[in-house]
């Protein structure tokens, strides 16, 4: 299994192919519905450095605040990505993201965006809240916590061997399209 260090170069990302299993280590950021909308309303200079050449994780975590004011992720599985389809390709382009982590895959617009900008879609294991929280040893800082609330805020996190599968690559490949196409063929066979 390959380990991928974040931040990552476009060249490294373009080497990844659909079906690769990778473990991520380094810094990334979370963001879901509210964050994506906000990122496209304006150019958010303050978060830009935390997005460039790393990945955004579609996750609404459960977070505990420690006595010293620091935070811990208590549960941190992926949320459904397709809701960000209208924004994702533009967010990748504007902020220089190299990837997106979520579940369920994304659509044609994002797939084209991945190819254009040199990025990938990484599928985490849906529901694996505890295993994934354990792979997030550190919360570095948070943006828009008061405005968006805990699940929607943008959390800058440190991950250690965070397991994902490349399900959409930067060459137009999509595991979701492959599996759906093959299962459609089998369905038609069964319903003959």
């Amino acid at each position: 299994m390959a380990e991928l260090k974040l931040p990552v170069s476009e060249e490294e990302i373009r080497k990844l192919k659909v079906g690769d299993f990778v473990e991520l280590s380094g810094r990334m950021i979370t963001g879901r519905d509210t964050a994506h909308h906000w990122l496209m309303q304006d150019v958010r200079e303050d978060v830009m450095p935390y997005m460039k050449d790393t990945v955004i994780y579609h996750c609404g975590p459960v977070v505990a605040k420690n006595d010293d004011g620091s935070y811990d992720f208590v549960a941190a599985g992926p949320t459904t990505s397709i809701r960000e389809e209208p924004y994702q390709a533009d967010v990748i382009g504007r902020y220089g993201l190299r990837g997106v982590i979520g579940k369920g895959g994304m659509g044609a617009k994002t797939l084209a965006g991945l190819a254009e900008h040199g990025a990938v879609y990484l599928h985490a294991i849906g529901g694996a809240a505890q295993v994934l929280a354990r792979a997030i040893p550190k919360v570095e800082r948070v943006f828009m916590l008061d405005e968006f609330g805990v699940p929607e805020a943008m959390w800058v996190i440190e991950v250690d061997r965070f397991p994902v599968v490349v399900s959409m690559d930067s060459h137009g490949g999509s595991l979701h399209d492959e599996v759906e196409g093959e299962s459609k063929r089998r369905l038609e066979e069964l319903l003959k």
Binding site: V74, A128, A129, Q130, L132, V165
Partner: peptide, 27 residues
């Protein structure tokens, strides 16, 4: 394969949640 890995992660998660009495999934 990917399917086996996914199920392995799921089972590991189930075990971990039980041992620390934490929700299996955040939803």
């Amino acid at each position: 394969g990917l399917a086996e890995k996914a199920l392995g992660t799921i089972l590991e998660n189930v075990e971990l949640a039980r041992s620390i009495s934490a929700p299996i999934c955040q939803d």
